[in-house]
Nucleic acid binder design. Structure first.
Length: 825
RNA sequence: GCGGAUGUGGUGGAACUGGCAGACACGCUGGAUUUAGGUUCCAGUGGGUAAUUCCGUGGGGGUUCGAGUCCCUUCAUCCGCACCA
């Protein structure tokens, strides 16, 4: 017998076997329940890292477990293949993004194959391939057709050094992710998706997702940021203009002592013109423009502003109110203008004190200050309305309703709901992305490309200049085109789409990946969607998951899908850490999966990563831990080796009779392990405890094999059960061991074992006896003893008698099967 | 500042509904096998104590016959959002 099992030959052997026999290829099968198991598809950076291994190992346990439980399992893999790194590589090393990307995919795919994950590779897709992005463009056209894709001028993140716009997620702490230059804002015409139309549904339907972690739902709720309030207009004194404000506190409208516009608000220039303040206002607005996003919006930046020289009239009482501009009001939230009530809003309060503006109390509770001048801070709690004319005496809640009702009646304003969620900016001035299928015609304006003309191909023969500007701008054969409508001269849109667009529907495409007329057939998605289990990192809690939900709802509304939520259950896996921090090149603490697989094999790598920590939690990498997992697999190897010959020809009895002693205990353990492993995988995703249960079974088997007399049926059942239970975690070694036990078929094709309730019946159990809550003795008792008998037995123990001498028993608590607690004084 | 999570042996972690804290591993100690190292196997391993036993789940308080688990309070670390009117 070999000292160590030979994973180097076993693993490729079974990987080839699975591939040759199309083990993981699936088709729709109405006769079996479906299960769609999906891990977030990776960006092809070139190399697999431990986070990937963890993600796919978790997914594979689920896929193999469900498959052995009779489900028709869809488990696909693909590539999120557009994106900035490919272009950076092109600029830096001169490699074409396409070549760079496809080479990376090749490399990562071969690494992935050495892990032995049960993917249906026939469904592989790459978002950068024309047969895929054709339909990303199709999605754009459908959204455009329905008024959900539009172009508008917007302030976007601009890196002055790279000479390009950046996505929000490419701005880290106010600086460019690539060169660390502070980012500023620039006004550019950009494409948006109108995700805000779906804000309410995206919020409400979170309640339809009990299979999602609360953490993620809370993050999405906050991101959507719904707030109820009112919106009303104020006449600007001496002008025909009005300004509109949004407030969540209509009840404090009589406490307004000044108004504030965001510096970028379009009214700022008009109303300050010709006033003595004009110059100061211009100066302030300019200064704000030069500030970076981070400096401008950080909470600890001091509030500052200037008077515009103009006043507005409070529609409730006709009061003249000065209009200011200030850094703390944001142009893109609400109406970009606020009513300031310093007595009841801390931000307004700080500003008012700094500039000597009045503070007027309009909400009063018994313990709140009545006088604005002596207030130390704003009073934001509940109370009743004062100094508010007819509304005096109303509570905050009632006041809100009645002030809004009054405004509606008088045509001053109305109740409104505001969302923090903004429309999704999808334009990127980048080459390596999905082209936006629109053209600009000199005659007809903005015209969508006809569906029949898709895909708009990304030209391959392009030049990369270090300026970072999109090469599409230089490629005449690309941008020079004809108008789809009038046939006249037109220019193609050279912006490409945010890669999040590509990843917002890839899970649908997996259902029907080779369809060349539609993104997917209705039949295919009706069978497979929604995804039953989605697995990936928390970093996508908001963006990717929200965008995918938005796309799904849109496709549902258009009747392309029958479900309106894409992911029924979501598992967010923790990070893989080394020495307490995230693995990174700069820290030099990266452990390469390739190396681990070479040294210990994929089965060990998978087992360790699943054993070291439950999936949601961060995982501390330990080289010694890996060694331990490897030792365990070797122990299993030896266990099976040493008895395979003895059990090979044994056939299991249809029923195990009354067993005694060790054999009985072993059979108990076998079935207890089936139950434990099944529950841990299915109910809790606690793979670490499932594996530890298998370890216990193997430990018991090792001991059992030392006995002279063995019940070979019980032994066979235990050994084979262990192999089957271990197979979703470490499939290759289990295939080999299964074969060693004399089986011709694959362990992957076995049904998941069922536990036999009869085997779990014990006739004796240990009971703890407590005196006043402290364990003082333990006794073995027959199961099924009555509570009274149990109590009598406990009291009769000599040790307990001794302890109770001279004391009075106050009370006895009996927990059958667990303990007896005797309370004595 | 707001929101969320996590604090258990030397380490990773277990304890699922309030019921024997530390399963399973790693590490360490001792022993066996081996010329030796490695491998493998056996035994021990929360802390204090000579010992009956006492103390122990970040700290403090509470509820309970009984608390890692429930309640209040406090500290530390990590993550997300951050002037959202």
């Amino acid at each position: 017998m070999e000292r160590r099992y030979d994973f180097k030959s076993i693993e490729p052997k079974w990987q080839n076997y699975w591939a040759q026999h199309n083990f993981f290829k699936v088709l729709e099968d109405p006769g079996r329940p479906k299960y769609y198991d999906l891990e977030m598809f990776p960006y092809p950076s070139g190399n697999l890292h431990m986070g990937h291994v963890r993600n796919y190992a978790i997914g594979d346990v689920v896929a193999r477990f469900k498959s052995m439980n009779g489900y028709n399992v869809l488990h696909p893999m693909g590539w999120d293949a557009f994106g900035l790194p490919a272009e950076n590589a092109a600029i830096k090393h001169g490699a074409h993004p396409a070549r760079w990307t496809y080479a990376n995919i090749e490399n990562m795919k071969s690494q992935l194959k050495t892990l032995g994950i049960s993917y249906d590779w026939d469904r592989e897709l790459a978002s950068c391939k024309p047969d895929y992005y054709k339909f990303t463009q199709w999605m754009f056209l459908k959204l455009h057709e329905n008024g959900l894709a539009y172009k508008k001028s917007a302030a976007v993140n601009w890196c002055p050094s790279c000479q390009t716009v950046l996505a929000n997620e490419q701005v880290v702490d106010g600086a460019c992710e690539r060169c660390e230059t502070p980012v500023n804002k620039r006004q550019l015409a950009q494409w948006f998706f109108k995700i805000t139309d779906y804000a309410q549904r995206l919020l409400d339907d979170l309640d339809k997702l009990p299979g999602w972690p609360d953490k993620v739902k809370i993050m999405q709720r906050n991101w959507i940021g719904r707030s109820e309030g009112g919106q009303f207009d104020l006449q600007i004194e001496g002008s025909s203009e009005t300004m509109t404000v949004f407030t969540t506190r209509p009840d404090t409208v009589f406490g307004i002592t000044y108004m504030v516009l965001a510096p970028e608000h379009p009214l700022v220039e008009t109303i300050s013109q010709g006033t003595p303040q004009e110059e100061k206002v211009k100066e302030f607005v300019q200064r704000m423009q030069f500030l970076s996003e981070a400096e401008r919006t950080s909470t600890d930046a001091e509030k500052e502003g200037v008077f515009t020289g103009a006043c507005a009239l409070n529609p409730m009482n006709g009061d003249r109110i000065p209009i200011w501009i200030a850094n703390y009001v944001l142009v893109d939230y609400g109406t970009g203008a606020i009513m300031a009530v310093p007595a009841h809003d801390q931000r307004d309060f700080e500003f008012a004190r700094k500039y000597g503006l009045p503070v007027q109390v309009v909400i009063k509770s018994p313990d709140s200050p009545a006088d604005g001048d002596s207030m130390q801070e704003a009073y934001e709690e509940d109370g009743v309305m004062v100094n508010s004319r007819d509304f005096n005496g109303l509570s905050v809640t009632l006041g809100k309703q009645q002030v809004v009702a009054y405004m509606e009646e008088k045509g001053i304003g109305e109740g409104t709901i505001n969302f923090r969620l903004r429309d999704w900016l999808i334009s990127r001035q980048r080459y390596w992305g999905c082209p936006i299928p629109m053209v600009y015609c000199e005659e007809c304006g903005l015209i969508p490309v006809a569906e029949a003309d898709l895909p708009v191909l990304l030209p391959e023969d392009v030049e990369f200049r270090p300026s970072g500007e999109s090469p599409l701008n230089y490629v005449e054969s690309f941008h020079k085109t004809e108008c789809p409508s009038c046939g006249g001269r037109a220019r193609r849109e050279t912006d490409t789409m945010d890669t999040f667009v590509c990843s917002s529907w890839y899970f649908d495409r997996f259902c029907d990946p080779h369809n060349d007329t539609l993104p997917f057939s209705k039949e295919a998605v009706d069978y497979w969607m929604p995804v039953d289990q989605y697995i990936g990192g928390v970093e996508h809690a908001i963006l990717h998951l929200m965008y995918s939900r938005f796309f799904t709802k849109f496709l549902y509304d258009q009747d392309f899908l029958s479900c309106d939520e894409p992911f029924t259950n979501l598992l967010t896996q923790g990070m893989v850490l080394k020495d307490g921090s995230k693995m990174s090149k700069s820290k030099g603490n990266v452990v390469s999966p390739e190396e681990i697989i070479n040294t210990y094999g994929a089965d060990t790598a998978r087992l360790f990563i699943l054993f070291a920590s439950p999936p949601e939690r961060d995982l501390e990498w330990s080289d010694q831990g890996v060694e331990g997992s490897y030792r365990f697999l070797n122990r299993v190897w030896r266990t099976v080796n040493s008895c395979a010959g003895d059990i090979r020809d044994i056939s299991l009895p249809p029923q195990f009779g009354q067993l005694e002693g060790e054999a009985r205990q072993l059979r108990y353990k076998t079935h207890a392990t089936i139950k434990k492993v099944s529950d841990d995988i299915e109910l809790r995703f606690n793979f670490n405890t499932a594996i530890s249960a298998i370890m216990e079974l193997n430990n018991m088997l090792t001991a059992y094999l030392d006995h002279d007399e063995q019940d070979l049926s019980v032994l066979k059942e235990a050994v084979e059960t262990m192999i089957v239970l271990l197979s979703p975690f470490s499939p290759h070694i289990c295939e080999e061991l299964w074969q060693m036990c004399g089986h011709q078929d694959s362990v992957s094709l076995q049904s998941w074992p069922r536990w036999d309730a009869a085997a779990l019946v014990q006739d004796e159990i240990e009971i703890a006896i407590q005196v006043s809550g402290k364990v003082r003795d333990r006794i073995m008792v027959p199961t099924g003893l009555s509570e009274d008998d149990l109590q009598d037995l406990a009291l009769a123990q000599p040790k307990i008698q001794e302890l109770l001498a001279g004391k009075q028993v106050v009370k006895t608590i009996v927990i059958p099967g667990k303990l007896v607690n005797i309370v004595a004084r």
